[in-house]
Design a protein around this nucleic acid. Structure first.
Lengths: 213, 213
DNA sequence: TTGCAAATGTGAGGATTGCTCATGTTTACG
DNA sequence: CGTAAACATGAGCAATCCTCACATTTGCAA
């Protein structure tokens, strides 16, 4: 919610920290910067996004931009963090109350549909996750996000199969989650019909693993 | 085998063509350029690879580099093409003679192990596939490669299950292949033990889908 | 209100890097 | 040997990320 502007990352290292906005005025400006960046990424992709253009569109100087974001990737990171926070809340909510196999089947199925819809509808999220993985810090954020999401799935599995090896359940959950993201990336890069088929096939395979045949 | 130096791509478009080496002398120089690029990618990743450094390490001028490669991504593309050609041949060989379920089980299992080994051992391949996907042309090459590889799997499945819907088999094969690559990427970015577990779990899931329970 | 330190805002310019091009050198071949 | 094509070179152009010295605004204590 808050403009977090986490100091980030030259090749994965923490960079020189930047001021966090403390006044109402600057908080609004940071919002405008993020909105401008988001729009530009949606239009051209994060790689083609130019810092000067972000500043111009946000109506601020290039210096102001760098006052709150240590570098270009920090802006992308900040946007990515918002999406992950949003989707994690959504996933937690969907899986929290599952108590039996049928519930898991329904919750998981819904979740996949929602995620797929998000990927299709949000060009920014799509670009960040499938495009800018050249960035080590972003890849690590994605891995952390995957682990967090898989965690919810693991919790459900442990509830449903208390006798199973917990480590194996964790592996299964992480794998299924990662496969889901891979499927989404593939699905949006092919035609709509084929994409839908792929997602349906993934859902079937994952459910077979999660709740059995 | 030949230094192909395919003219490639600013945002996926074909770029101004470059000379293909026709003399022995220049063919050797192109080889040195590719070797230098490969070494630099292995050391620092393709993003940090500098064209000037490639030229210097290859013992050629920057101008010579651009004589045969239209731009930076063309070098990466050329290296990627070699790997895909190599691995496709390997995959084709492994799956060509499969004629029954047990054969598929064994061939697929071997294939996964070989691929996993390749990912672990080849930093260049690892970097190209998991790092530089910001490049649209490279992503398309990867998709084309995935489709080609999945094609071999599809052929086997059609042979083993002639009654099944061909389109569904194609979807299944592509999905399983893409999931495999996603698993590899995940496996190499976590610890060795967890990576091995993930690959084993993938193999189990994929085989369940391919040859049944 | 006034004074001042901290927060914020600015944009010219430094530094890096992908890539071009005018020019010089080597090779193939009739 | 002569010539055209292939090959080689590196200074420099252009694009872009980011810094920094300086100007302005805000919060707040005296």
């Amino acid at each position: 919610m808050e403009g977090s502007t986490v100091p980030v990352s030259q090749d994965g290292q923490i960079a020189s920290p930047r001021r966090a906005p403390s006044q109402q005025r600057s908080r609004e400006r940071v919002e405008r910067m993020l909105a401008a960046a988001s729009a530009l990424i949606a239009e051209q992709g994060s790689d083609a996004m130019r810092m000067g253009e972000v500043a111009e569109r946000a109506g601020v100087s290039i210096g102001s931009l760098y006052q709150f974001f240590p570098d270009k990737r920090a802006i992308i990171w900040a946007l990515a963090e918002r999406y992950t926070a949003e989707s994690q809340a959504c996933i937690a909510a969907a899986l929290a109350q599952v108590s039996d196999a049928e519930g898991l089947r329904r919750a998981f199925s819904d979740l996949v549909d929602i995620y797929y819809g998000l990927f299709l509808a949000e060009p920014v999220m799509r670009d960040i996750w499938s495009g800018t993985q050249a960035d080590k810090a972003l890849r690590e954020l994605e891995l952390a996000d995957s682990r967090a999401n898989a965690e919810f799935l693991t919790a459900v599995l442990k509830r449903l199969r208390p006798a199973a090896d917990p480590a194996a359940l964790e592996t299964t959950a992480l794998l299924i989650w990662q496969m889901g993201e891979a499927t989404m990336r593939l699905a949006i890069s092919v035609g709509r019909q084929e994409g839908d088929d792929l997602v349906a096939a993934y859902k079937r395979m994952a459910l077979r693993e999660l709740v059995g045949q």
